[in-house]
Design a protein around this nucleic acid. Sequence first.
DNA 1: CTGCAATTGAGACTCTGTCTCAACTAGTGC
DNA 2: GCACTAGTTGAGACAGAGTCTCAATTGCAG
Lengths: 168, 168
Amino acid sequence: MPTAEREISRFQVFLQQQGLKLTSERSALLREIFETHYHFEADELLFRMKEKNVKISRATIYRTLELLVKSGLVRRVHLGEDHYHYEHVRRDSHHDHLICTTCGAVIEFHDPVLEARQLEICAKKRFTATFHNLQILGVCDACRRKGEQPDAPDRVKMIQVGALNLRK
Amino acid sequence: MPTAEREISRFQVFLQQQGLKLTSERSALLREIFETHYHFEADELLFRMKEKNVKISRATIYRTLELLVKSGLVRRVHLGEDHYHYEHVRRDSHHDHLICTTCGAVIEFHDPVLEARQLEICAKKRFTATFHNLQILGVCDACRRKGEQPDAPDRVKMIQVGALNLRK
DNA sequence: CTGCAATTGAGACTCTGTCTCAACTAGTGC
DNA sequence: GCACTAGTTGAGACAGAGTCTCAATTGCAG
Ligand SMILES: [Mn+2]
Ligand SMILES: [Mn+2]
Ligand SMILES: [Zn+2]
Ligand SMILES: [Zn+2]
């Protein structure tokens, strides 16, 4: 993995087309995003940069992520939480996600049959799709095995009185 | 539409199973949710209740929506915005959404072939799905027609300086 | 090298959603 | 019906994600 230099120049092309500039902050972020891997949150990225002693403000993180999404270098996804996650995009690496509600694991998959069927549905509705987002929530294999052991004892954890938080 | 009384008693059954109570606030909300139709936001519901001079606090709105989601009477969905939307659930009315990024229209669809394929994928990955959420973003038929007219003039609306808000 | 439009950081701000706690009810049992 | 108590409510404080403002700074075209 040649440390993201390819993506930085792709980003620069995009920026120039828009009359924007490539700054040291922007390339530092791009480098971080493409060197590490996986589904990260905006504030997590902020924290990682801080750890590396690269000073970048929160505003710039958000602004740059927005630009990266627009340029197609980064994808913004929902993973069943109430804030966004981001992931870098390598060429033609589209996929969707299975998300384990027990351990939080994220399993990526790509299925051409599924994708094709979605397009058929759009055609039927005369809808021009630009992108989509599919999350399947459930329990992963590892968690299912563990759960099968009659582990009933800790199931009766009623947390707090009142209507909320029925059983964790 | 017999004004949601059926759903209220379904909710009461759920509440009793959990040792919870049916209050006037809860049934008022359920009535509002099942009488009107479509994809609403929590604060929008708060506003509608205020308009009708039914005093219900924001905390109770959120708490009740959480209960309704747990009971299966209401579904919480992402529609490509950065907060949740809710919709009431009639029996076996599962569907997913096409969302027009131009006019905000939401088109519902249900496709057994698509659903079946998702299950196959999960089986292959040994993943036990409990629910899913598919949003297809794009341009609806009406907006596409309008957009085809060479309406270029207002396309060059650069809003604000700087990197953000490239073109609205 | 210069000039200037684009960018940055700090922090205020907005919005969605959660929590706390004292006052208040639903509903069970008498 | 009446009382008791666990569950519920509202007000407002709080939290977290994300946006905006503006003065100071920087990329980069000429
Ligand atoms: Mn992914
Ligand atoms: Mn719907
Ligand atoms: Zn798991
Ligand atoms: Zn539209």
